[in-house]
């Protein structure tokens, strides 16, 4: 059985070496101590609310969250009335009506949060040719996930002298290629938090990352809670299997 241990150890080393350590030119982001990390981790509800606010007041003018419906915001921690109000604040195209025409109506809980641009071409035209990506899955769609998003948002800096910045681009060492079309989106006091939290860049970046982790993995809390139960069950079951095996083999050893 030493051999088994040896193979497993080697396999682990190999898989670590094989993990995606290639942010292609981008600096490796620092590890952040997120509330949702770890075996017992879960989302920080007040941070999610603040992050949602930052998304709506800052990001949503360029970036969509196409997989999120207003009803989902209730799971996130908004009250039903708040979610309904948010839905009713937007106009959704519906139809066709009896005349065969499309019409606009107030949003409902079942509607998705509408994207800022009707299609990719419109988004590019409005953003100097760059496409602001949808953010629903951003924290799962990049190496280092939430750490990367946080580092990117807080990582804008003066370009080093030897780097020539292309027109319309901004310097950010964490971005692949280190030049990003998005200008620095956050500044101190960009939003006003009702819960009294001070809206520093770091605070807002942390909250929006928390929110975007939720949009990418809304079942994380369920998953970790269920996981604990399943693991405990399986540890007991495996223990019982070992006991059964010993009992069965007792008379032949």
């Amino acid at each position: 059985m030493k051999a088994l241990a040896k193979i497993l150890a080697l396999a682990v080393v190999a898989s670590l070496a094989a993990s995606p350590a290639f942010a292609a030119g981008g600096h490796e982001p620092e590890k952040h101590d997120w509330s949702f990390n770890g075996i017992l981790g879960s989302y920080d509800k007040p941070a999610l609310r603040r992050g949602y606010q930052v998304y709506m007041e800052v990001c949503s003018f360029c970036h969509g969250v196409e997989f999120i419906a207003f009803r989902n915001l209730i799971d996130m921690g908004l009250t039903e009335d708040e979610a309904k109000a948010a839905a009713e604040a937007v106009q959704i195209e519906d139809g066709p009506d009896d005349q065969g025409l499309m019409f606009m109506r107030a949003g409902r809980l079942s509607d998705r949060i509408p994207p800022p641009f009707p299609n990719e071409n419109a988004a590019r035209a409005a953003n100097g040719g760059a496409l602001p990506p949808d953010l629903s899955l951003m924290t799962k769609a990049r190496p280092f996930g939430p750490d990367y998003v946080y580092a990117l948002l807080t990582g804008y800096e003066q370009a080093p002298d030897d780097v020539e910045i292309a027109p319309g681009m901004n310097y950010n060492p964490f971005y692949s290629g280190e030049q990003i079309a998005m200008f620095e989106p956050l500044f101190d006091g960009a939003v006003f938090f009702e819960d009294g939290t001070e809206a520093t860049i770091e605070q807002m970046a942390e909250d929006i990352t928390q929110f975007l982790m939720w949009t990418a993995e809304p079942k994380l809390d369920d998953r970790k809670r269920m996981g604990l139960g399943v693991m405990i069950f399986l540890v007991i079951l495996t223990g019982m299997f070992i006991a059964v095996k010993r009992r069965v083999w007792a008379d032949v050893h």
């Binding site: 075996i39 998953r223 970790k224 269920m226 996981g227 604990l228 399943v230 693991m231 399986l234 540890v235 079951l237 495996t238 223990g239 299997f241 070992i242 059964v244 095996k245 069965v248 083999w249 032949v252």
Partner: peptide, 25 residues
């Protein structure tokens, strides 16, 4: 049976633990 069914079950327990560890964490 019962010797190797019992021995296989020990493997099943460990296998499920590894799978559940990946799935949930």
């Amino acid at each position: 049976h019962p010797y190797f069914t019992a021995k296989d079950l020990v493997g099943v327990g460990v296998f499920l633990l590894v799978l559940a560890g990946l799935v949930f964490y």
